[in-house]
Amino acid sequence: MSAIASSKAVTVTVNGVEYEREVEARKLLIHFVRDDLDLTGSHIGCDTGNCGACSMIVDGQLVKSCMLLAVQADGASIETVEGLAEDGELTALQQSFSDHHALQCGYCTPGMLMSATALLRTNPNPTDEQIKKALQGNICRCTGYWNIFEAVKAVGS
């Protein structure tokens, strides 16, 4: 019988680094990553599962980390926006966001980058429709969608 508990020892690998922490069952993954692991690149926009600013890639799948408990991620390999650039070298997608001025206030950017990264991994040459569909779960309240779309499109083609 598995233990029923209000807290649990959780081991996760985030951007290649392993962390072990005791976590309350009620803690959302986004709070765990931001507050306990001090990785504040992923943002909390709405906290209702709508905006996508908290998007992360968990075991290869794009998820909104405000709708996952941290204890559910035990054993998982997690990728956040901090893990994209290597040794200060931006990914092609990040560079393209810069080149296309694909951010205004920047709040949605970490989520947009993770969603677009997940798309390009499985579909390196997406159509316009596929790009739009892939970014549907990410809201930009500056409404700067067009430059974001162009930035993703430029990397894809």
Partner: peptide, 8 residues
């Protein structure tokens, strides 16, 4: 919904 929701 969207990709993220469909994945979970």
């Amino acid at each position: 919904a969207d990709v993220q929701v469909r994945n979970r």
